[in-house]
Design a protein around this nucleic acid. Structure first.
Lengths: 188, 188
DNA sequence: TTGCTCCTCACGTCACGTGAGGTGGC
DNA sequence: TTGCTCCTCACGTCACGTGAGGTGGC
């Protein structure tokens, strides 16, 4: 039996969040102490775990509440709908990005665009499921098999000359047999 | 001189939005009619255009208000900060997507994942700046120069066999000289 | 006179955060 | 007795949407 404060700390969320969940009927403490303190049972804790899982998926609390008492099919369906929604949201943010890039180009900017474009591209690929190592391996393979097309591809991404050269150099080194202990982007 | 309702319709936003902008001091009608109707001048309209531009970039109204009376440098800087912010937001949404894919995999799903992954990938590339035609041309070139690697690449994206075959067939046809009148994804 | 547009409050939204004012527990 | 934790309101957030109740304009 945990009080609200302890439970909150245990799950890394705020006490007021728990009070809010109580208020909207999402998660009520199954017991109260004589003084009125909320006391959360193991069952309550289990329910909280489910709630936080679905919250991590970006579902609304109201929807989570309904799903917890619904058949599993409803959950699967809701998650798939959420995936589509996320596609739309990402598209929307991408439009904002491209719009901003347009605004900046109209003005007198020169260098930020190039670096942004590179970092955007990278975060896209990483978000798409590629790890840093995947990217390194991919560049290495590309460079080994068709260095000319590799360069053209990097140019297409508007990555500046110096960066292109650095990426190709790393790719050649990786392809020539050095163990892949390198981290892209940070210190290596 | 336009009233609020007319101005709203002209710019495709709601009348209440304009009232709200007035309320927070973002855009005040420079004149009122004897009866108290808001009358927007050409100057007001020009200011609204600027507001909507920045709103399309996803800036907050409060920030927009400050930027409109600030030097151009501040605007450029704000837009670049917003770009970074967008990267973070997209990352966050991607995490949600990957988390959901994990949840669905734990359950008994089988087919939705494959198709999602494909559509996610495509929307990523399109959002990154590739047009449908760019994609088609890219596949065509890849297929022409190294069909084996092209297939491996598509497989890496977890695109189902049948889709892979279709994409390669289209790519071969495109590379063999047919004019690129085709649309990817819809009917073609 | 009839619609349509306009006006000004005031309240609701979503998931909490932040006090204010008061009590329980070691 | 002193801190720390807990309790219950109540209000603020962001960009509006939605009435309610009342007036202007063709």
């Amino acid at each position: 039996m945990l009080t609200a404060g302890r439970l909150a700390r245990r799950f890394g969320l705020s006490r007021t969040a728990l009070l809010y969940y109580d208020g909207i009927g999402l998660l009520r403490a199954s017991t109260r102490s004589p003084a009125g303190y909320r006391l959360y049972s193991d069952g309550d804790i289990h329910r909280l775990e489910q709630i936080l899982r679905l919250r991590s998926a970006g579902l609304e609390l109201d929807q989570i509440r309904r799903l917890l008492d619904a058949p599993a099919d409803a959950l699967t369906e809701a998650l798939e709908r959420r995936l589509e929604e996320l596609n739309d949201e990402v598209d929307h943010l991408r439009h904002q990005q491209r719009f901003i890039l347009g605004l900046l180009q109209t003005r007198s900017s020169r260098k930020p665009l190039r670096t942004m474009s590179r970092s955007i591209w990278k975060s896209l690929l990483i978000a798409a499921g590629f790890t840093q190592d995947d990217l390194a391996a991919w560049h290495a393979g590309f460079e080994r098999d068709s260095p000319v097309r590799h360069q053209a591809f990097l140019k297409l991404l508007r990555i500046p000359e110096a960066e292109v050269a650095a990426i190709r150099a790393r790719a050649r080194k990786a392809a020539s047999g050095a163990p892949s202990r390198r981290r892209v982007g940070k210190t290596g």
